[in-house]
């Protein structure tokens, strides 16, 4: 079986975290998910600083990024990722409640790799999130320097 690659989920709402993990779990993708609760934490994680300074080197296979987050928003995180030579190749998927046109434009301008609106109905939500997990964590070939899961 293919080695599972790690997923970084940046999501401030604990219910969303739980529902997302539930969805990923239904396809056995929940184990290698690292959850951060705001943009700042996400960046700390990626830059291996603060409480993440001791984590192993290597980028996640994909970042599932909520846009509306306290402190540092998802878009700001995205901007920093895509502006950083060490991070920019890492796939980032915006996973958000809305399909606001302005968010779409900004995200794609910043170089987002995918933009997914969380469906309202839970069945659709599960389908969408699990497909995402399958695609990015299993099917997609990540760029070099991607950590190969949490050992």
């Amino acid at each position: 079986m293919e080695r599972l690659k790690s997923i970084l989920l940046a999501e401030d709402n604990h219910m969303d975290v739980e529902l997302t993990l539930e969805a990923l779990g239904r396809h056995n993708l929940a184990n290698d998910v690292e959850v951060v609760n705001d943009g700042e934490e996400a960046l700390d994680y990626l830059h291996r600083r603060g409480k993440y300074s001791s984590r192993l080197e290597g980028n996640p296979a994909v970042v599932l990024l909520d846009i509306k987050m306290p402190k540092v928003t998802g878009l700001e995180v995205l901007k920093e990722i895509k502006g950083d030579p060490k991070l920019r190749m890492m796939p980032v998927v915006v996973l958000t409640s809305s399909r606001e046109e302005s968010d779409l434009i900004k995200s794609y301008n910043l170089g987002v790799n995918a933009y997914v609106v969380k469906p309202l109905g839970f069945e659709e939500f599960v389908t969408a999130v699990s497909r995402l997990g399958v695609f990015w964590a299993i099917i997609n070939e990540p760029p070099p320097g991607t950590s190969s899961g949490i050992a």
């Binding site: 529902l19 539930e22 509306k68 606001e100 839970f122």
Partner: peptide, 25 residues
């Protein structure tokens, strides 16, 4: 108005999704 509808689209939908999700669970 833009900010309003922006926050409506994000903030109003999230609880609904949660209601739906948890009632399903």
């Amino acid at each position: 108005l833009e900010a309003f509808s922006y926050s409506v689209s994000h903030d109003l939908r999230a609880p609904l999704r949660h209601i739906h999700g948890y009632s399903d669970l």
